[in-house]
């Protein structure tokens, strides 16, 4: 196991809050209407972020957008190489995905493999009108041709580094930190 030490705080509570507010505005600007939209949070940290985005949109625009939860473990491309088998959780999308504008929410965009799994899992449930991606942090190093439509903060990183998005709902505190591996690369 690699060990990591904290290097810097790159977003605090206010910055995260402002980023979500900006994204709420941009979402409406780009889509004109959110009548047919569904916000989908990817487990684990995409879920509270999705809830906050829903709340922010409601506060700013007075629009109530339905929300759902996506578990992508059944669609992972690395199941056979994991040492610890993941426990599968429920995917809950109360209104379905067929014909909807899907706003997919996750904390960090890195290789793009999680998003690939999420896209496959959504499309297996029906044909949405479109899918847009919201992430709190884009740290680069994509391994697939995937990009985010709305980004809280772009953070150039090295592969030795790690980004942790901490959320009050799970971690008791709101901040984004960058960590660095203290061991040599394998």
């Amino acid at each position: 196991m690699k060990k990591f030490i904290d290097k810097a705080v790159i977003m605090d509570e206010d910055q995260m809050d402002r980023a979500l507010k900006r994204i709420a505005h941009e979402l409406l600007e780009k889509n004109k209407t959110l009548d047919n939209a569904v916000i989908l949070g990817i487990r684990t940290r995409g879920v509270p972020l999705a809830e906050r985005l829903k709340k922010t949109i409601e506060e700013i625009h007075g629009i109530v957008v339905p929300i759902g939860v996506l578990d992508i473990n059944l669609y992972r491309d690395d199941l056979t190489s994991l040492t610890e088998q993941p426990v599968i959780h429920q995917t809950v999308i109360p209104v379905g995905v067929k014909g909807k504008k899907i706003i997919l929410v996750d904390d960090v965009l890195y290789t793009g493999r999680t998003i690939r799994a999420a896209l496959d899992s959504i499309i297996d449930m029906g044909r949405p009108e479109l899918i847009q991606l919201v992430v709190m942090v884009d740290r680069g190093h994509r391994e697939l041709p995937i990009r985010a439509d709305f980004v809280g903060k772009n953070v150039p990183t090295s592969k030795r580094e790690k980004i942790d998005v901490l959320l009050k709902e799970i971690d008791g505190v709101d901040k984004v930190i960058i960590k660095e591996s203290i061991e040599e690369d394998e």
Partner: peptide, 23 residues
């Protein structure tokens, strides 16, 4: 416990229109 927990999301798949995952 783990089998019974994993069975809950599996039951959702049975109820879906497209009853297939690539796992």
């Amino acid at each position: 416990d783990e089998i019974l927990r994993n069975a809950v999301p599996m039951k959702d798949i049975i109820m879906r229109d497209i009853k297939k995952v690539p796992t």
